[in-house]
Design a protein around this nucleic acid. Structure first.
Lengths: 215, 215
DNA sequence: CAATCAATATACTCGCAAGTATAGAAAATA
DNA sequence: TATTTTCTATACTTGCGAGTATATTGATTG
């Protein structure tokens, strides 16, 4: 019946005896689940009002388990924020390396940016105020956000250089775009009728309208 | 020597004996000082992280004095937020009743709106998440914000009707504008070099650019 | 002058939530 | 099989901060 018996090194997927790699993956999955529960609690109630006891309860586990997988409360938050920032940086890198005019690349990036901001970890990046972090973490946080902002400004500048974007003040244009596309992290309800992709497209169209050259 | 003696009902301004009206004004001034100290603490640290003991200490007074003038912590926050909302509503009413095209009135309002958002109480409106309020206060808060938003949408719609604004999606346009002009409440540093009026003008120009009709 | 009221402080209570000490079960390793 | 490591829970400690009870002082009013 069986096509092969114990030839492949990987055990049958349903085996109760987990290999080392499997155990590591188990651990990673649990860690991930804890992180997700935490970020959702942070987003729903705000960092201070979200207690680790609540996070644990939402998973049916106990608080020390959170410490086991992720460390103390600030470390949990930092990890959440880093997830979001990594997604944003990847999007920025992808857009920077794409073909097309500055305007095209900026537009592609902003669509992704807006969607990330409506997702758990991106939302957390936007909603996390530096004041809640230790000075050290806040410094790193700021630096990583500046990276993203620099990428936006670079794309705007390139668009201006190649004529696909009107000659606006680069700094304020990036502030305005960021504001328009960060704001959904505050009001968009993931359970509501508006799909993030749709919101992103409409907002980007309007926000980018102001940067499009007049003929 | 004296031109008049005890003819006017108001006593000399330096008299140590305060009239009833003066005492009421004293009280109002103190209340105001407490409110201002509180809103600044809330803005600087966030509502949860700002303790009333800290607020009291910043004024050299004790916590019960805050309760004496303003009530409990949430009442303090609600009062702060209401101050900001009142400023915004006044601005909206002024703009709605002004002459000019929809675009002109919208622009005038947005300039004021952006400036208020960089000020203590307006900043507090933006930075206060509904989750920190009691359900009752949150409902009222939402209603008052909706009023402002409705005013913005009305101005956009009027602008579209009179041809001074491009035929955009009114709802998303108001979201985009709000985002762009709320965001400074998060990043603008009152102690920094950028003057609020200047920030407001640049942001409004860029944000409104997307709504201006093409010829 | 007595009684009251306004304004303020000191010194508490009390609950929540972060973080920890300890223990035990299960699995892995020697 | 003995020993160590991993995972998880229960049950604490601790500190902070909201809110309050009570006292004091000075002015206001009857």
């Amino acid at each position: 019946m069986s096509k092969s018996v114990a030839i492949t090194p990987a055990p049958a997927p349903t085996s109760p005896f987990r290999s080392k790699a499997e155990r590591e993956q188990d651990r990673a999955e649990k860690r991930e689940a804890v992180l997700l529960a935490a970020v959702r609690m942070f987003n729903a109630r705000g960092y201070h009002a979200a207690s680790l006891d609540d996070v644990a309860a939402s998973l049916g586990i106990s608080k020390p388990t959170i410490y086991h997988y992720l460390g103390n409360k600030e470390q949990v938050l930092v990890e959440c924020v880093n997830r979001g920032l990594s997604m944003l940086r990847e999007a920025a890198e992808a857009a920077a390396g794409a073909p097309g005019s500055g305007h095209d690349r900026l537009r592609a990036f902003l669509l992704r940016y807006a969607c990330i901001n409506m997702d758990d970890f991106g939302r957390c990046v936007i909603r996390t105020n530096e004041e809640v972090l230790s000075m050290d973490s806040a410094t790193r946080f700021r630096a990583r956000k500046r990276e993203i902002d620099a990428a936006v400004r670079a794309m705007i500048a390139e668009g201006i250089a190649d004529g696909s974007i009107a000659p606006v003040d680069v700094r304020f244009a990036s502030f305005a775009l960021a504001g328009a596309l960060n704001w959904p992290a505050r009001w968009h309800d993931p359970a509501g009728p508006l799909r993030p992709q749709e919101v992103a497209e409409k907002l980007v169209d309007i926000a980018l309208g102001g940067l499009t050259p007049r003929d």
